[in-house]
Structure formats: structure tokens, C-alpha cells
Amino acid sequence: MNTADTALWWARARALGPARHEAGTPAPDGFLRLLEPHAGDVWLLPAHPGTAGPWVLDEMGFSGPTIEQPNDTARMLAAVVRCCWTDPEAPIWPGREVDWETVLSVYRTFGDREESVLNRAATGAIRRLNGGGWVLWDDDRRVVRLGPRCGTWVNADLTVLRELYRSLPPPEEPEEDEEYGETPPDHDQGAGSTPVRDQANLPGPPADDDDAVDASMMDADAHLREVPASVGEEDRGDPA
């Protein structure tokens, strides 16, 4: 792939979000390939290096895109992860498809809310997640899957998610509905495996623990004082 094509691929991915292509479609280096279960398709989306992705904004004190009802939306994503991640010891992608009631059964546990309020919050949240590529929501069949953006979570993220998964109640699944309930057949998940955010030539992963970041920051501060305004470096802390 030449430089002009590469530039177009990155820009197109930014303009259109994750895109579904035929499995053989060549994509530039640095792109994630997430295989679609059942179909010969593949999701292609850029994978940013560990120190250059949207996750570093928090550490630098900048804000990313405004998310409406951020907490409801984040909780809905947690519910979808709980329902769709087939096996928390295995890669998260592609997960399985579940119906809306199943997701709601987990989402409902997040607060004692009137059903109408809950439904409105849940519908808003799932649409926002669908718009951002975090879930795939089928409006006609009312079923939900994990979206391709979930493939950009790295190992450190998955560790946190696993803990979250275990802390959540299992979904109540409609019993007769076998159709959605099964894990997709074993696929070659090599291409869909967890991206590696950290490279040898770059500093370590973002620390997961805020306190740890702050502590390393204090240490860093001593020698950074004479180096004016080195924004960013101290944020990432010592390589783990």
C-alpha cells in the first residue's frame, strides 16, 4: 500500500468510523482487522499506538468528545459487555448476539428506576453506543452485539473489564430462545486478537490507577522543574 492510499485509509476511517469490508481487503499497517463471525467480512479500524490514542486525553487533562448522559451510556456498555462477552478468559471480539431484554436485565440492576425512565435511558444509551461503533444494534430484530470499537481495548483494559464482568449479575436469558444464545463457531481469531498498544521503542502503558500516576508524577516533578512545561511526559509515569 503506497503512502497516498495509507493516508486515505486513515482519513476515511476517521470520517466514517469503523467500516466493514470483504475479508481479503488490504488495509494499511496499523489497522485492526476484526473478523465478522458467520460472514466472510472483516471490520477495519485504525489502532493508535499506546501513547497516541484517545485514552491518553484523561491523563493530560483534556476532554474528548462530549457524551450525553455519559454515566448511563457507560453503564449500558458495561451491560452489553457482560451479556455479549462469551468467555472473559478469551478475546472479547466478536462475542455473541443477545436480545434487548437480556441486556436490560443487567442494565436494570444499575438502579431502582421506574420502567419508563429506565427504558428511555436505555434506548438513548444504546443508540449513542451504536452511533459510536461500540455496539451493533439491530433495530428490527432488537438484538445487540459488541461493536468493532471494543476491539481497540488492549490487555490492560481487558483486565479491568474482566473484573467488571465478574462483579455484574449474570443476565436473565429467555429460555426458549436458543437462536441468540450460542457462541459463534470457532473462528480464526488471530486477526481479531487484542491489539498491542505498547511497543519496545515507546514508553510504557498508561497507568490504570490514578493514584499511581499521581505518585510517579510527584517524583517526576523534581527533575522536571528545570525543564519548563514538558507536558505529557510525566503523565505516563514510569514504564510499568
Partner: peptide, 15 residues
């Protein structure tokens, strides 16, 4: 395109 980022930490906190 709309591209919010959801960190697992933020999800866990929200829950």
C-alpha cells in the same frame, strides 16, 4: 464520525 472513547475504568466507575 462520532468517536467517543469509553475507558473500562470509567465504565466500572459509572457502575
Amino acid at each position: 464520525a462520532v468517536a467517543p472513547w469509553f475507558s473500562p475504568q470509567a465504565m466500572a466507575l459509572a457502575v
